[in-house]
Design a protein around this nucleic acid. Structure first.
Length: 733
RNA sequence: GCGCCUGUAGCUCAGGGGAUAGAGCGUUGGGUUGCGGACCCAAAGGCCGCAGGUUCGAAUCCUGCCAGGCGUACCA
């Protein structure tokens, strides 16, 4: 509102001075000096630059100078001219308009507000709108945000947590910006992971499920991990040997001695083929990968393994100082870690010969699914429900509310029909027996960009892409979505570009506006990470730790709260911190999840903001007013009066409150919750500054009323911003 | 090879054309006969990866290079 006035005033002054506004229009920004409130424009810089350049060229005095000197001359002249222009414009604006003060500083035209008047209007608006302050005008474009795609039969870990937190926040922000938003979840309830899990369950754990139903989902996740460990066992062993061959010179130096030992055993009557030994020797000496199918006998590695262990135990007990060799990377594991890893693998060395048979069994299990064998389908339904019950609990805890639940199992058949249609239309083709879309070719691109995407396995079973094509079609046709957004790991960005292009080729205009919101992984800090893959913290464990720590801190800081309040606050603070940690880093940056840091609750963290909110509530309570009501401020009441001069802390807080609506629009435009995270943290900081510098309750009237109203407005804006992030705003803590 | 992402304080990160580049953690030293000390103040700490270019003005935009990460036809 004030900005509009300022822009018009400057435009009028420019016209009056016979100057044309610059092509980019009249820019406005907040005045960056402490203790002032208003807007600044750099129009004079832009105009002066042009004028000076033209004049200097016309005069020809630049010709003898070097390019660098000429630039410097022009730059200096432009700065001087900008200030002259700004002074002229400032004088004109002053004589025609009602700003408190108009000045020319450093070539900028600065228009200072009448702080009391603008503060009154702003605070009145915040209090009147309450939870709606910050929201944008309703828009018609229908948006669907698909997020939270955990796999059933697997555990929900902190990576999924980041996805859900992002999805929730982005949905909230888009809704606040004015879009009609549908939130969708898409659990992976079928696929190879399910088959592997159920194979392992039937083969090794049937009838062992925990009695407590609430533990079944997690138990099932452990079964999946076990299946993975069993089926990948050979790869794990071989990649460990590969690592040794690259990083442990002692191992490589001694390899022929170690293998000779194996050979000698052979002479004692055990049968080991010399070819395998020669192969191992060659591969390890040259630091090359050992290929499982190049080994002739199943027992070579099994027999070799104890000898490797002997060597590693010795190396761990008598560590030799590491001499870094030229051009060699630092070793990723210490001798102790290597031996520990060996022991870990050694525990299951009897798995080695079993692996091929297991793989065959998994293939057979997959066929049972493809045939829809009733008994197997029943098992699937039952176990799937164990996981889904877990997901519902977690989503509830995180405050995720889904308008739609899609399931991969629902779109499998539909996807296969679509593949047939795409083949028929000539968009897809069969290449080497595999249905694919050669995207670059279809788009007529010469340079490889989108490459080729398979859309069905050659055996006719469905891929992720098969299902995604079907699902997206449903989003557009059944749900009338104009813009679809996917919150999915950034590693899949090429895949999504491919899907979008295929949808475009297929004729869906909406695909052009669709967007893959990629985010980086959640990792453990260096040193904590174990070589065991998939070792990401489990959500439930992290949640329990954070809640326990929150309870501890509340007990320490505020022992007099009633027990049920303590518990409620612990959840608000604990879960709030967790969510904050997930959102407080840009999407394309890896979150290094340090449990200690997540538990500290200090500094740039949710409790800092929540604490500011609780403080604001407490001040209002002391004043004997119900938040948001008693100070209800409207046009009929007299304007707030902060006094002749507002404190810098008051101004700083007011200015920040004023920009929430813009921040929401910006956050929505770039799908960036971080925008709001930064905003609300800064708001809390400014409120704390204000709190320490400006007494509220002890102040004389009319300042007291004005400051109370400011506290109430701050309280509302803190709560609204936290709500966008899905973080609770406790009234006490 | 090609493509995408990242490089800012000791560490973790904000800032994405505009006036003096900011936070948190860590280090050092302070603050409560104040509305909640989960707070605040101060000090120290920067060739904003390198080199060009565009601009009145570049950490920010463009080009090239260097370094790291990730993708790249039957995993999801």
């Amino acid at each position: 509102m004030e900005a509009q006035l300022a822009r018009e005033a400057i435009a009028a002054a420019l016209a009056d001075a016979g100057l044309a506004p610059p092509p980019r229009g009249i820019d406005l920004r907040p005045i960056p000096f402490e203790g002032s409130w208003g807007v600044a424009s750099s129009v004079c810089h832009a105009i002066a630059g042009d004028l000076v350049q033209r004049e200097l060229e016309a005069s020809g005095e630049l010709q003898q100078l070097s390019k660098k000197e000429a630039k410097q001359r022009a730059s200096e002249a432009a700065r001087k001219r900008a200030q002259e222009l700004a002074e002229a414009i400032a004088t004109k604006v002053k004589s025609t308009n009602g700003f408190a003060r108009v000045e020319a500083v450093n070539g900028y035209v600065n228009l200072y507000f009448d702080a009391n008047a603008v503060a009154s209007r702003l605070i009145g608006e915040v209090i009147k709108l309450g939870p709606d302050f910050g929201k944008g005008a309703p828009k018609t474009e229908r948006v669907m945000v698909e997020h939270s795609q955990p796999n059933t039969h697997k555990v929900f870990h902190v990576g999924h947590l980041r996805n859900s937190c992002l999805g929730i926040a982005v949905s909230n922000i888009l809704a606040a910006a004015g879009y009609p938003v549908l939130q969708a979840t898409y659990p992976g309830d079928i696929g190879m992971h399910v088959i592997k899990c159920l194979w392992c369950y039937e083969r090794f754990h049937k009838g062992q499920e925990p009695a407590d139903p609430s533990l079944r989902g997690r138990w099932l996740g452990q079964i999946y991990s076990e299946s993975d460990a069993r089926l990948e066992y050979r790869k794990d062993v071989l990649s460990f040997l590969h690592l040794l061959s690259k990083e442990d010179q002692g191992f490589v130096a001694g390899i022929d001695r170690l293998l000779k030992y194996l050979w000698r055993k052979n002479e004692q009557g055990e049968v080991v083929e010399g070819e395998d030994i020669a192969y191992l020797l060659g591969r390890i000496t040259h630091g090359q990968e050992i290929k499982e199918d190049q080994l002739r006998r199943d027992d070579v590695i099994v027999k070799f393994w104890p000898i490797v262990g002997d060597y590693l135990r010795d190396a761990a007990l008598n560590p030799k100082p590491h001499v870094p060799a030229e051009g060699e990377p630092e070793p990723t594991m210490t001798p102790e870690e290597r031996y520990a890893r060996w022991q870990e693998l050694n525990e299951h060395i009897e798995w080695w010969p079993e692996v091929p048979r297991w793989r065959e069994e998994v293939r057979e299990t997959f066929q049972r699914w493809e045939r829809q064998e009733p008994e197997f389908v029943k098992l699937w339904q039952e176990t799937r429900e164990w996981s889904l019950a877990d997901f519902r609990r977690i989503f509830d805890e995180l405050g995720a509310h889904f308008d739609v639940w899609f399931f991969e199992s629902e779109v499998e058949e539909e996807g296969k029909k679509i593949v047939a249609e795409l083949l028929e239309k000539g968009i897809a083709e069969i290449s080497d027996g595999l249905p694919v879309v050669k995207i670059d070719e279809k788009l007529g691109l010469k340079q490889e960009t989108y490459r080729t995407l398979p859309i069905l396995r050659s055996d006719g079973t469905s891929l992720y892409s098969t299902k995604d094509l079907a699902l997206t079609k449903r989003k557009f046709e059944e749900f009338g979505i104009d813009r679809a957004i996917w919150v999915v790991d950034v590693r899949q960005s090429l895949y999504f570009q491919q899907i979008f292009k295929i949808l475009e080729l297929w004729g869906f205009e909406q695909a052009k506006k669709s967007y893959h919101l990629g985010y980086e992984i959640v990792r453990l800090p260096e040193g904590v990470i174990s070589s065991r893959k998939g070792n990401v913290p489990i959500y439930d464990d992290v949640r329990d730790m954070v809640l326990a720590r929150a309870r501890e801190i509340i007990e320490e800081k505020n022992p007099d709260l009633p027990p049920e309040t303590k518990e409620r606050v612990a959840r608000q603070v604990g879960l709030g911190s967790l969510k904050f940690a997930m959102l407080a880093r840009d999407n394309n940056k890896v979150v290094v999840f340090d449990v200690e840091e997540a538990l500290s609750f200090d500094g740039f963290a949710a409790p800092y903001i929540q604490y500011a909110h609780a403080r604001a509530c407490r001040i209002l309570e002391h004043a004997g007013i119900t938040p948001g009501q008693a100070i209800a401020h409207d046009d009929q009441q007299p304007a707030l009066d902060f006094g002749e001069v507002l404190a810098p802390e008051e101004l700083s807080l007011l200015q920040h409150i004023a920009i929430l609506p813009d921040e929401v629009q910006r956050a929505a435009e770039y799908y960036r919750p971080l925008q709001i995270v930064n905003y609300v943290y800064e708001l809390a900081r400014r409120f704390n500054d204000f709190y320490h510098a400006c007494p509220v309750l002890q102040s004389p009237e009319p300042t007291r009323t004005a400051r109370l109203a400011l506290v109430d407005a701050t309280r509302i804006v803190l709560a609204n911003s936290l709500a966008l992030l899905g973080i609770a705003a406790p009234e006490e803590m």
